[in-house]
Amino acid sequence: MSAEEHNHPNASKYFKIAIILCVLTALEFGVFYLEFLSYGIIPILTVLSVGKFALVIMYYMHLKFDSKLFTYIFLAGLFLATLVTFALMILLDWF
């Protein structure tokens, strides 16, 4: 294929990312049972899952190595989706 495919990370990099993903999932699992954190688990879990999300789209979906246009298109959808979700939660008195 084209040149862009060649500077992709190799298999060992993918393994490393998989390990990080597993560790993050394990952390999520662990944090969840730490009762003393109380509401503190919400930001912690949010950060952890955003991290997982970012790793997958950047490396496995190779947004990091592809044209920025793909990133913009996807993030536009993601951004609006987040915004609408929060707006609906506010409007329907969730908070």
Partner: peptide, 10 residues
């Protein structure tokens, strides 16, 4: 995929 984000968001 951008569009599917909206689907799951809803």
């Amino acid at each position: 995929l951008g569009s599917d984000c909206m689907f799951f968001a809803a």
